[in-house]
């Protein structure tokens, strides 16, 4: 299980990387390599050239910026897990990260790599879609950004064009003091890709009425998706029939069947885990009296 031959380059800037990528459409970016290298080893991917961006400082780091946390594409997953900044501002991402692979792959795997790989059951894309993150893309024309929901097109398919490089992910930060999150997933083994993953974030006012709520599901169809929970907004969450809301929102979801689980299973699990995630988020928000930074 050895990769087919390829050339290796390590550009000094994103601009140079984009130039190389634009010039050779069979060149591929490598960052953490935790998904790409198995594909190379099995010769399921056969790039002519690997463009290593993992040491580009301009793509690394976690910073707070205008109501958002911007995570550079080559920031390793473990660095986010250990980040005080992310811990305070992105509680949903913090809940999801322990489900990403296992510790050794999180030590090398990058946030941008997970986004660019666009596995339908991957946790980081799910959080990005759920929170309405923006994906920043750089190419020879400069930096642009697009909502995660538009970025992900299908299983392992994104809006990235030849010559593009995912540069950062801009996760919106909710500033409401009474904030709660929930994350659940089911997989064959804990470290496997999720059959279904559910993420929820809720903000409440002082009276326990919902100010904002989002619920996202991964693993069900060919990309992560948000489900409509707008009915919750303005309602007293203590009395709201959360399970029914989620059930009706998931009833007609397109779902995939595979070796391990059926489409029916995915729909049932989506309803159950979606409700559980939302209930957790509500409970956490209700318990949160203090101010979240």
């Amino acid at each position: 299980m050895k990769p087919a031959p390829f050339a290796y380059v390590r550009p000094d800037s994103v601009a140079e990387a984009c130039e190389i990528l634009a010039a050779d459409e069979d060149a591929r970016i490598i960052a953490g390599g935790q998904t790409l290298i198995p594909m190379l080893a099995m010769r399921l991917a056969r790039p002519t050239k690997l463009v290593d961006i993992v040491r580009l400082k301009e793509l690394r780091g976690i910073r707070s910026e205008a109501g958002a946390i911007v995570v550079g594409a080559v920031t390793r997953q473990v660095e986010v897990e250990r980040s005080e900044l992310a811990r305070g501002a992105l509680p949903l991402l913090m809940k999801a990260l322990p489900y990403v692979g296992h510790p050794p792959t999180r030590n090398r795997g990058t946030v941008g790599g997970s986004i660019a790989n666009a596995d339908p059951s991957a946790e980081i894309p799910l959080v990005a879609v759920t929170l309405g993150a923006e994906i920043e893309i750089e190419n020879s024309g400069g930096r642009t950004s697009m909502p995660a929901d538009e970025f992900f097109i299908g299983a392992m398919v994104t809006s990235v064009m030849p010559g593009d490089c995912v540069a950062a992910v801009r996760f919106p930060v909710w500033s409401q003091p009474r904030l709660g999150t929930g994350f659940h997933e089911v997989s064959a083994r804990q470290s496997d890709f999720a059959f279904v993953a559910a993420a929820a974030q809720v903000a409440l006012d002082e009276d326990g009425r919902c100010i904002d709520a989002v619920v996202g599901l991964g693993g069900v169809g060919d990309r992560a998706q948000r489900i409509d929970v707008s009915a919750l907004v303005g309602q007293d969450v203590a009395r709201f029939p959360v399970s029914e809301l989620i059930r009706s929102a998931t009833e007609h979801l397109e779902a995939n069947s595979d070796l391990h689980v059926s489409a029916d299973y995915r729909r049932r699990a989506a309803a159950a885990l979606g409700a559980r995630a939302l209930e957790d988020a509500i409970a956490e928000a209700r318990a949160a009296g203090g101010v979240v930074q």
Binding site: V78, P104, N107
Partner: peptide
């Protein structure tokens, strides 16, 4: 110092 897969790095 961090455990990593030597098969997943060139």
């Amino acid at each position: 110092g961090e455990p990593s897969r030597a098969c997943l790095m060139f």
